[in-house]
Design a protein around this nucleic acid. Sequence first.
DNA 1: TTGTAGGCGTTATCAG
DNA 2: CTGATAACGCCTACAA
Lengths: 328, 328
Amino acid sequence: MADIAAHLGVSRQLVSIVLRDMPGASSETRTRVMQAAHELGYRPHIGARTLRQAKSRHIGVAFAPAHATEPDIVAAIYPAAAEHGYQVVLSAQTPTRSTLQAVDELLGYRCAAVIILGTDLTDKELRALAKRVTVPVVVVGAGNRNAAFDVVRSAGDTGIELAVRHLVELGHRQISYVHGAAMPPGALRLEGYLRAVADAGLDSDVVTTTGGDFTEEAGANAGRQLLGRSVLPTAVVTGNDQQAVGLMFILARAGVAIPGQVSVTGFDDSRLASLSSVDLTTARQDPQQMGEAAVSAAVRRIDRPALRPSLSVVEPSLIVRSSAARHA
Amino acid sequence: MADIAAHLGVSRQLVSIVLRDMPGASSETRTRVMQAAHELGYRPHIGARTLRQAKSRHIGVAFAPAHATEPDIVAAIYPAAAEHGYQVVLSAQTPTRSTLQAVDELLGYRCAAVIILGTDLTDKELRALAKRVTVPVVVVGAGNRNAAFDVVRSAGDTGIELAVRHLVELGHRQISYVHGAAMPPGALRLEGYLRAVADAGLDSDVVTTTGGDFTEEAGANAGRQLLGRSVLPTAVVTGNDQQAVGLMFILARAGVAIPGQVSVTGFDDSRLASLSSVDLTTARQDPQQMGEAAVSAAVRRIDRPALRPSLSVVEPSLIVRSSAARHA
DNA sequence: TTGTAGGCGTTATCAG
DNA sequence: CTGATAACGCCTACAA
């Protein structure tokens, strides 16, 4: 910065004013400074800036690169944060790097708030973490309203209800459900299924998989279980898209026509779902809205820390594709 | 830090010495300081640290969260960097955030080097970027040796050759190839296919897909093309796992048995490949090695900037699963 | 619009 | 091991 000032023969603080886009400089010098900065390849030193500034202008995001839906939420967080005047700092949770480590690093950058995406920590562990941390914590994915941290999640129950109602309207009466018992959002989605089949006056049929997670593997496992029965259901609702794809693959390989013999639905509207080879009817969990809600929650509590942590529920919508069809 | 010193009645620099794990403190005070730091919830201010330090201890990583293989490479980079004494700073490339913006941010953190994973920039654009940037740049994915930046990639040609040779050994004589024409690593992989079929004295059959990318969509497209023919090949080699899965799905749906009628192979050994429902024979591109090679290249050029940028080629290995079988 | 002075939290270098 | 002092690049406040 001193270089630019020297180069232009002006004061450092004028340069600072221009680069921060503050009032107090003529538009002529503005352009001169900007051009000189560009020519000299100047980048503001983020560390020095955060060191000097009283309040942090950074929001930290701890995410698991390997998960399916998080990339889109991360992508959505960037513009949402920018809109509130915040920069984003990323920190990865990997098999060798726990959520705690990831959050610790974010704290080292003096983030004003921390957003945690898809952690495998339990509610209790999260509460402990939030208490230890002195900045607002927003957990995205699952959870209930609590005093320790903000929660952003989709309405998993109504998403599954939408899928079941859609199948009922298509004339299905035997609708099974693949349950992700081990996943935090799983319980809520199961609730939705049970409520919806009860409302329609149908019997419930919950398939619990080994592992009980939201993987293609679990869906394949459920598929094998169903194939071992004497009679298949006419429709299967799954807890997420990955399960649905694993299930569809196993059924297709066994010669079961989809949706001819069995209709299948998913949850998330991930990239998998829109593949022409899959073309999955699914409850869309809008990553855009999730990202925006997470940033909003973070900013709200940065501005007013005394506020009670919020719960933001994003309503899913049903995306109708060809994997579910009218029952013959 | 001053808090800890005051709390313990010692000097600040002693605390600093302990926290940085430098020589000059007794093991007794070490434990006292560490405990006090823990109790007070102290985190070193990363910004202040980088501001003061002469040389940066950070490696920046620009990555696209949405891509399939990058998460694993990111995961591998963390421990590799730590081994060399570096911390990792992440910056995302998203639809709304170009590689340039991502790299610019990393420069703001005064990273000692920048690793770029799976950018959509052309070779020429990358060269321009590397010239503008004053720190070493490592590009992971594709590229040839050049004077501007280091390249880390897998030997796409030999990976595909391994797959073709495996199929030849299994008795296949009609081996088609699904080409990812639009992808940077695509050209090299095609070379491997052409060389391998020529070596085996077979005819080549290259299926070019609309889009020509490494997506399930492209594989499905290739599958439809093959199904439109009067006779199917007995084996299909694809440019990556996602294409393979899209292809397998379309074939399975059409009642073609895999591997009974058609054998299929992929490239990457991504998570998709090891699913029991897919169980794909594929050329493994080891993300671990890629990550380590990227960090090594970065560190090498940080230490000796005058060195000519390197090209690191990671050799793939064939993972044999059930999607390719002996030709009847 | 410019100049001056101070300080953010840390590391580095000295002399004790 | 301590104490003193300076510096990193930037922002803020205040005076000119």
